[in-house]
C-alpha cells in the first residue's frame, strides 16, 4: 500500500521529472520508476500533456539543410526522399513552402537577370532546401519565354520540372528544365499565369513521362514571382 504522504511525494516527483528539473542520480531513479511503475509513468505523461501547449508559444526557427541530409543518411534514405505519388502530399509541401517562401521573399533581390532587358519582366529567385541552392528565372512576356539559370545536375535519372502555382493553388507544369539552364517557351494558354504573386516551384520528375498533370514529389525549390 502506498500511504498518502508517499503518494504526494510520488506526485511531486512525477511533476519534477516532467518539468526536467531532476538531474544525476535523482533523474536516473525517477526514470527507472517510469519503467517499473505504470501509474507513475502515466502521472509523468499527464504532466507532459498538460504543459505541452507551452511549447506552442516558442517561435519556429528554420534549421540548416545539413539536418535533413544527416537524418536521411542515418535512416538509409536518399537525401532527397523518393517521390510520393499523392497530390495531398504535394499540398502539404506547398503549404509548408508557402511559409518558407514568405520568409525567403525577404532575400529576393529585385533586379533584372539580364541587364539589357528594357521591357517589363517577371523575375523569380527560387531557393532550395539547401540554402546554397539559388535559381534565378526571368520571364519575357513579349516573347513568352522563360530564361532559367543553371542548376546542379541531379544524379538519379530525374530531372527538374518547373511549375507555376497561381492563386488557386493548383500547380501547372511549365515543362522540364535542362540543368545547364536556357530558354523555356511558355504555352500561350499558360502565359497569363506568370504574374506577380504567383509561386514558381521545382520538383524532381521522371523526364520520360513529362510534362505531368501534377507533381509527384515535394518541391525542392520555390520562389515568388515579382514584376520589375
Amino acid at each position: 500500500m502506498v500511504d498518502a504522504a508517499e503518494e504526494q511525494d510520488r506526485g511531486a516527483l512525477a511533476a519534477e521529472l516532467a518539468l526536467g528539473l531532476l538531474e544525476g542520480a535523482e533523474r536516473a531513479q525517477a526514470l527507472r520508476l517510469c519503467l517499473s511503475d505504470p501509474v507513475f509513468a502515466r502521472e509523468v505523461e499527464g504532466w507532459t500533456t498538460r504543459l505541452s501547449p507551452l511549447l506552442d508559444t516558442l517561435p519556429p526557427v528554420l534549421p540548416s539543410s545539413r539536418v535533413w541530409h544527416t537524418v536521411a543518411a542515418r535512416i538509409g534514405a536518399a537525401p532527397e526522399a523518393p517521390s510520393l505519388n499523392r497530390l495531398h502530399a504535394w499540398r502539404a509541401g506547398a503549404l509548408m513552402s508557402g511559409a518558407v517562401a514568405a520568409a525567403l521573399a525577404l532575400f529576393i533581390v529585385l533586379r533584372p537577370v539580364e541587364p539589357t532587358a528594357r521591357m517589363p519582366m517577371a523575375v523569380s529567385q527560387l531557393k532550395g532546401t539547401d540554402e546554397a541552392q539559388v535559381l534565378a528565372i526571368s520571364y519575357d512576356p513579349r516573347k513568352g519565354i522563360l530564361q532559367v539559370g543553371s542548376q546542379a545536375e541531379p544524379g538519379d535519372g530525374k530531372r527538374a520540372e518547373l511549375w507555376v502555382i497561381p492563386q488557386d493553388g493548383v500547380p501547372r507544369s511549365l515543362g522540364m528544365m535542362a540543368h545547364q539552364g536556357g530558354a523555356i517557351p511558355v504555352d500561350p494558354a499558360m502565359r497569363p499565369l506568370i504574374a506577380a504573386g504567383a509561386t514558381l516551384a521545382v520538383t524532381m520528375e521522371d523526364p520520360a513521362t513529362a510534362p505531368h498533370a501534377a507533381p509527384s514529389s515535394l518541391p525542392v525549390m520555390t520562389g515568388k514571382i515579382s514584376m520589375i
Binding site: V71, A72, A77, G93, L218
Partner: peptide, 13 residues
C-alpha cells in the same frame, strides 16, 4: 522515407 521527409517539412521549424 518520403513519409519522414513530409513530417520533417511540416514540423522541422
Amino acid at each position: 522515407a518520403a513519409g519522414l521527409r513530409n513530417v520533417y517539412d511540416l514540423t522541422s521549424a
